[in-house]
């Protein structure tokens, strides 16, 4: 520290803290979207740092599809309890009750209802004017073009061709009637950075990021975990599916029916970091949401997905 130099991770951390403070200072009713995954864990730690010694001045909101892994729900409740954060859980109850499912309705439609639809109506319901999300530019190529402060119109839609220029650290936080802001403090982080930071800061994460033997269905080369219960019906075997026991872990966490595991023996953070360093595939390789077309993420974002 005496060298008056900040390491790469500390520079990213300071940048993210400044972004969160800007949100707290300039918006009337902000919220942090908390998806329970590793990026959310990092985001919460940075928020704790940004507002220390005070509490995080906005609630965390989990937009729940009902299809998340049981380990995620358990982790979420324990974690938010421990750090004394205000947690709001919002679901599209109507569509969940009607049995909306990626295999029956298609991935795009299911996401539109349970994620985008639920998110937009939750933002409206609570009157949130800014939603902080953990998306990173490295994750996907349309995200690489998105601003840190990304404007949404009254319908929650992103207009990629009409973005405000974003210069230096001078963020334009102004909204017109009906508009809202999505804010991405982790824009410049990569998957490797996230893991390095989790190790450096000893940040708790959902245990299913670590490898263990699991029963999976192998479908189109993707390892889909087998889970009991009605919520996880996509993880139930269909005709022609083979059930196998494989040592694997989850590289990113989504809904059970749409999240594949990867074969891995990484049981420690060091193992995971070594694995991520050697990875030849992107972290969203096992996310069915991105694979439908070359611009499926951009399309979803235009519709209001975060």
């Amino acid at each position: 520290m005496n060298s008056l130099k900040l390491s790469y991770l500390r520079q990213l951390e300071a940048e993210s803290m400044a972004i969160m403070r800007e949100v707290a200072a300039d918006f009337k009713n902000p919220v942090m979207l908390y998806s329970v995954g590793k990026d959310s864990s990092v985001m919460v730690r940075i928020a704790q740092k940004a507002f220390h010694p005070g509490r995080i001045p906005f609630p965390l909101m989990h937009v729940d599809t009902g299809y998340k892994f049981p380990e995620m729900y358990a982790f979420r409740d324990a974690f938010c309890d421990k750090i004394a954060a205000t947690l709001i859980v919002e679901r599209n109850e109507e569509k969940i009750a009607s049995g909306c499912h990626p295999l029956a309705d298609g991935v795009d439609k299911c996401c539109a209802h349970l994620k985008t639809g639920a998110l937009l109506s939750a933002l409206r319901k609570h009157g949130f004017d800014a939603a902080i999300g953990g998306a990173r530019r490295e994750e996907e190529k349309s995200r690489a073009k998105e601003r840190v402060f990304s404007l949404r119109d009254a319908f929650g839609q992103w207009d990629p061709k009409n973005q405000r220029p974003e210069l230096w650290d001078l963020y334009n936080t102004r909204l017109s009637e009906g508009e809202t802001m999505r804010v991405f403090p982790l824009s410049n982080w990569t998957e490797k950075d996230i893991w390095e930071y989790i190790r450096l800061e000893e940040i708790p994460i959902v245990p299913i990021y670590f490898a263990q033997e699991r029963e999976v269905i192998v479908r189109d080369g993707i390892l889909i975990p087998l889970y009991d219960g009605a919520q996880a019906s996509g993880g139930k075997p269909a005709k022609g599916d083979k059930i196998r026991k494989i040592v694997c872990r989850f590289r990113s966490l989504g809904c059970i029916p749409c999240t594949g595991a990867i074969a891995s023996t990484a049981t420690t953070l060091e193992d995971i970091i070594a694995e991520v360093r050697k990875a030849t595939k992107s972290e969203r390789e096992n996310r069915i949401i991105d694979l439908t077309s070359d611009s499926s993420m951009e399309q979803k974002k235009k519709e209001g997905y975060f």
Binding site: E138, S142, A144, N188, T190
Partner: peptide, 29 residues
């Protein structure tokens, strides 16, 4: 195409907006 993140860019074969890329070596990010 790897760098042109927006559908309009790929359709028109031009780059419209600034894109951000990340890489690292043993020495630097």
């Amino acid at each position: 195409y790897l760098l042109d993140g927006l559908a309009a860019e790929r359709e028109q074969g031009i780059t419209i907006d600034v894109a951000y890329r990340y890489f690292e070596t043993a020495k630097r990010k």
